[in-house]
Design a protein around this nucleic acid. Structure first.
Lengths: 184, 184
DNA sequence: TCGCACATGTAACGTGTTACATGATTCA
DNA sequence: TGAATCATGTAACACGTTACATGTGCGA
């Protein structure tokens, strides 16, 4: 049977381990202090996730007893883990991803350096840009369909969403340009 | 004992019922078709949530048997439900809300019409604008601290976040202006 | 007659949250 | 001595997801 797909938290952990093998505690600090902070840094999330990764053979661990404190358990991605991670990075993006899981796509982008293939990244962001453009369209048409007498608050709320997506679209197009320059 | 705070989905349902008493099926359609779509429309989420609202006396229900089809169960907010909802709308916003739960704040704004108090809305969005400004600061300082040799992909990913927050900040400031004009 | 829209619900499962437990070392 | 930091983990709980169950009326 094909084993279940990892969760986003698991992918994030796997990605961080690609940068450098480290312990659960280290990983928690990363989530607590960097922009990845939208993922939880709580031990009740991290440690079970690492355990799942280990039992599906996506990471391996070894004990570091050189410290005087409690021994640290250092995790590294396994060969299988690297393969699964790359597959995730290269997966096609669906319109639904863009609308509802934009953050997940940005997570994927953040780890795209693992592929070491700027052209692949450019294609990814370019597809993202297209999807964002058409999503803007959809939202604006929804906005036009608001009944005349709709109060201002829901209008502003919808505007917030539209402006966010517009900003994302601008960012995506600009990023494609940057990636094209980088390549040359 | 003070009963537990409702979840966001429950607040969203409660808010929609303020617009108009309706059935679980109607509510599901709202989530499935409008910009509120980031909340799940699955029956396994909606019906239990309505049940919870009912058992904490935030909504009441009555059966509508006038249709030929299966009878519909129509929910309305109770007096207590209205009170709890207003308290939620008026709650102070924390910096953490802005960073991690911006969408929840927009949901609150969308239902702010219930208060029928434009000045309260203006104060709310104004506070939001301030928090967003300082959050932009924090993210940009994080961006400056990226090591020299950081690959382009994580940079772009962080940029995405920054641009989104900047867009939100611009939107908030503009909205404050609109609200000030509306009031006069 | 086949399937779709209406309309409500339940059950299993997985995951995150919160809170707790453990224990050594360092520093005030 | 007490608190904070390092470092790992577990347990109870609540919620959402997915999939299923049930049954009517209507149009092709």
């Amino acid at each position: 049977m094909p084993s279940k797909a990892p969760t986003n938290l698991e992918y994030a952990l796997l990605g961080l381990l690609h940068q450098q093998p480290q312990s659960g505690y280290d990983l928690r600090k990363v989530f607590a202090t960097t922009a990845l902070g939208n993922y939880s840094s709580s031990p009740g999330a991290i440690y079970p996730a690492l355990k799942r990764l280990e039992s599906s053979d996506l990471v391996t661990s070894e004990i570091d007893s050189t410290t005087k404190l409690r021994p640290r358990k250092i995790f590294s991605p396994s060969r299988k883990g690297r393969a699964v991670f790359r597959t995730w990075l290269k997966a096609d993006l669906t319109p639904d991803d863009v609308a509802r899981r934009f953050d997940d796509l940005v997570l994927r982008l953040a780890f795209h350096w693992v592929l070491n293939d700027l052209e692949a990244t450019r294609v990814f962001v370019s597809a993202l840009a297209d999807e964002l453009d058409s999503y803007v369209e959809a939202l604006e048409s929804q906005r036009r369909q608001f009944p005349e007498q709709t109060p201002i608050q829901p209008r502003l709320a919808l505007d917030a969403g539209i402006e966010q997506v517009k900003a994302a679209a601008r960012w995506a197009h600009k990023s494609v340009k940057k990636l094209s320059e980088e390549r040359s």
